[in-house]
C-alpha cells in the first residue's frame, strides 16, 4: 500500500518530453527533416516561427515552476501546449501519467473541467456576466446546478476577498479586482494543476505586490501544482520552487532560484540575473562554510533564511555565526564578511 502511494507521488503531475511547437504551414515536414535540431533562423527563412523548441521537464505534485524569458520567447506557447489550447507539433506530454496529446475531445473537456485551471494576463472575464456568474461559469459548464454553483462561487469570492462585490460586472472593477475574479474562476473547479500566464503584469506595482502576497497565501492553503509565467524576476524569486528561463523557444536553464543566480548556465541567463540583488534570493545555506567548532559564536541562524532578512543583525554581531537546520541541528558556520560580499561586492 505505502509502496503504491510512493509510486504515485513519484509520477510527475506534468511531464514534457521534447515538446516542439512550430507555427507555419509546413512545420511538420520541416521538423521531421531537421532530426530534432531546430534552428529558429533557418526555420524563419522558410516561413515558420519557432514557439517552443525541445522542451523537456517534470513538475512534481505541489511544485511551482516559474517560466521566464523575454517577450516572444515562447512562454505562453509552452503553457498553451500543456493545456492543449494549441497542438504541440511533436513530443509527448503526460498529465498525471496520461498521454495528453492522444486524448480525444471528450477526454480533453473532462480534463479541463476537473483538473486544470488557468488565469489569463488580460483577465478574459465574460463581460456579460457578473462577478459571481463568471466564477460559477465553469461549474455550470460542468453541469452543476445553479444553486450549488452559486454557493461554491460565493466561497471563492470570499477566498479572494471580493465579498460584497458579487453582483458587479467586470467593467465596474479595477484591474486587480478583475484578476481576483480570474483567479477565483480558475480555482472554482478545484483543479490540481494551475496555469497562470503573467497574471499580474497588467497590474500596477502596489497591487501587484498585494496580489503576490495573496497568491502566496492561497498557495500555502491550497498547495497546487503550478506553472507560472512572468516577466518579473523578483516575482519569480518570491514564488518559485524552480525557474525555467526561455530564449527563442529553448529552455536555457531549469533550476532552483539560487542556482540560477549563482551559477547561470549561459550568457543569456546571466544577463537576466545580473541586476538581481542577491541578498534577496540567496539563503544563508548558500554562503555558509562547513562547521568549525573552534571558530563559532553562540548566535544561531536558520539555513533557510533569506540573507536580506537577517543581514542587519548578522552584520551587527561581528562574530562568526552558527547555522542550524529546521531540526535545530548544526549544519555550518557563517562569516559576516561573506554577507558583506554578497551585498556590496561581486
Amino acid at each position: 500500500m505505502s509502496q503504491l502511494i510512493e509510486e504515485k507521488n513519484s509520477t510527475p503531475v506534468i511531464k514534457c518530453e521534447s515538446v516542439y511547437k512550430i507555427f507555419g504551414n509546413n512545420a511538420q515536414r520541416l521538423l521531421e527533416n531537421s532530426n530534432g535540431q531546430v534552428d529558429a533562423k533557418t526555420f524563419q527563412e522558410s516561413g515558420c516561427i519557432v514557439g517552443v523548441n525541445n522542451a523537456s521537464f517534470d513538475v512534481m505534485k505541489g511544485e511551482m515552476m516559474v517560466v521566464m524569458g523575454l517577450s516572444g520567447s515562447g512562454k505562453s506557447t509552452l503553457l498553451r501546449c500543456i493545456s492543449r489550447l494549441t497542438e504541440a507539433t511533436s513530443g509527448n506530454i503526460f498529465i498525471d501519467g496520461e498521454d495528453l496529446l492522444s486524448m480525444n475531445n471528450k477526454q480533453l473537456i473532462e480534463l479541463r473541467r476537473n483538473k486544470m485551471g488557468m488565469v489569463f494576463q488580460s483577465f478574459a472575464l465574460l463581460p456579460h456576466k457578473t462577478v459571481i456568474e463568471n466564477i460559477a461559469f465553469p461549474l455550470q459548464i460542468k453541469g452543476m446546478t445553479t444553486q450549488d454553483s452559486m454557493s461554491k462561487a460565493l466561497e471563492m469570492v470570499e477566498l479572494v476577498g471580493l465579498k460584497g462585490r458579487e453582483n458587479y460586472f467586470p467593467r465596474e472593477l479595477s484591474g486587480g479586482q478583475q484578476q481576483r475574479v480570474g483567479i477565483a474562476r480558475s480555482l472554482a473547479v478545484e483543479p490540481d494543476i494551475w496555469f497562470l500566464d503573467e497574471p499580474f503584469s497588467a497590474l500596477d506595482p502596489l497591487i501587484r505586490k498585494e496580489m503576490q502576497d495573496e497568491f502566496l497565501r492561497l498557495q500555502g492553503v491550497l498547495n497546487k501544482t503550478i506553472m507560472f509565467v512572468t516577466h518579473d524576476f523578483d516575482e519569480a524569486l518570491r514564488l518559485a520552487d524552480k525557474i525555467a528561463i526561455m530564449k527563442d523557444g529553448i529552455i536555457e536553464q531549469l533550476d532552483t532560484p539560487d542556482n540560477i543566480v549563482l551559477n547561470p548556465a549561459t550568457e543569456y541567463v546571466k544577463k537576466f540575473t545580473e541586476d538581481v540583488p542577491r541578498e534577496k534570493v540567496l539563503k544563508i545555506e548558500s554562503i555558509m562554510d562547513p562547521y568549525d567548532s573552534n571558530n563559532s559564536g553562540s548566535k544561531q541562524v536558520s539555513k533557510d533564511a533569506i540573507i536580506e532578512t537577517l543581514a542587519e543583525s548578522i552584520l551587527n554581531s561581528k562574530e562568526v555565526l552558527t547555522v542550524i537546520d529546521n531540526k535545530n541541528q548544526i549544519v555550518g558556520s557563517l562569516n559576516p564578511s561573506k554577507v558583506i560580499k554578497v551585498i556590496f561586492g561581486k
Binding site: I109, R112, N114, I141, G182
Partner: peptide, 14 residues
Amino acid sequence: SPEVVESGLMSGCN
C-alpha cells in the same frame, strides 16, 4: 479577444 475564447475552453466548454 482570443483569451476570452480560451478561458471558455479552459472552463471545459464544448
